[in-house]
């Protein structure tokens, strides 16, 4: 089993609890702290990408998340909110990275490489992150809640119950909204490529 990791930065726990009790100032202090932590984490992961070891196992991310707060001291709801925050930040970090990477690759005249090489089997259907980000913005224009659900699920790894807790809606609603959002995003992102044809070509 996982060894109990000492929290790297105890203040985060306190700030989190304060935030969940309505202290918005606590949030303002919390965000940069978490952001820095996540950046360091993402940076480490993304650097290792160069040596062909990308986000090797997502477990790492979470171990890092957990090191930031004393998980036992915060309630389930607070944890959910914390992960929601992480999801938002993680999205920003990863998108920024993808943007820089694209710019540098373009500069070299190379192609835009997928961010996470090791997820080979998902590669075919993993969305282009920059395109996804833009599509999510468009989705937020239409229904911000659906965009949040996608963010929490995809960038934060929250499950249905957690998302329901964060957004204060029922988990059945989460399921419905997610289903539609996913379908809409799929269409937004897949229009140029017909996955059926891709599969058919592979089958020869």
């Amino acid at each position: 089993m996982i060894d109990a990791q000492p929290p790297l930065d105890a203040p985060i726990t306190g700030l989190l609890i304060a935030w969940s009790h309505g202290d918005e100032q606590a949030r303002d202090v919390l965000v940069p702290l978490v952001y820095d932590q996540l950046c360091a984490l993402a940076g480490g992961i993304l650097r290792s990408e160069r040596t062909n070891h990308t986000l090797a196992s997502s477990a790492l991310v979470h171990e890092a998340f957990l090191r930031m707060v004393e998980i036992d001291k915060v309630g389930w709801n607070d944890r959910a909110h914390f992960f929601a925050l992480c999801a938002r930040l993680m999205r920003r970090i990863l998108i920024d990275h993808a943007r820089k990477q694209r710019a540098s690759k373009r500069g070299e005249g190379g192609e835009n490489l997928p961010l996470f090489e090791d997820r080979l089997s998902d590669k075919a259907r993993d969305p282009d992150l920059l395109a996804l980000d833009q599509a999510l913005e468009r989705l937020a224009d239409r229904n911000s809640q659906q965009a949040r659900i996608v963010e929490l699920r995809y960038f934060g790894g929250l499950d249905r119950e957690e998302i329901a807790a964060v957004l204060g809606i029922s988990s059945a609603t989460v399921t419905r909204r997610w289903r539609m959002a996913r379908a809409w995003l799929f269409r937004q992102l897949s229009q140029p490529v017909d996955p059926r044809r891709a599969v058919a070509e592979r089958l020869g």
Partner: peptide, 25 residues
């Protein structure tokens, strides 16, 4: 939308950032 839903397959099913040991889920 309905067509997309039917065709989306495992699209975005697996979160980019996955949950693992000891996390809330």
């Amino acid at each position: 939308l309905l067509v997309s839903e039917a065709r989306a397959g495992t699209f975005m099913e697996a979160p980019l950032v996955r949950r693992a040991a000891g996390s809330a889920a």
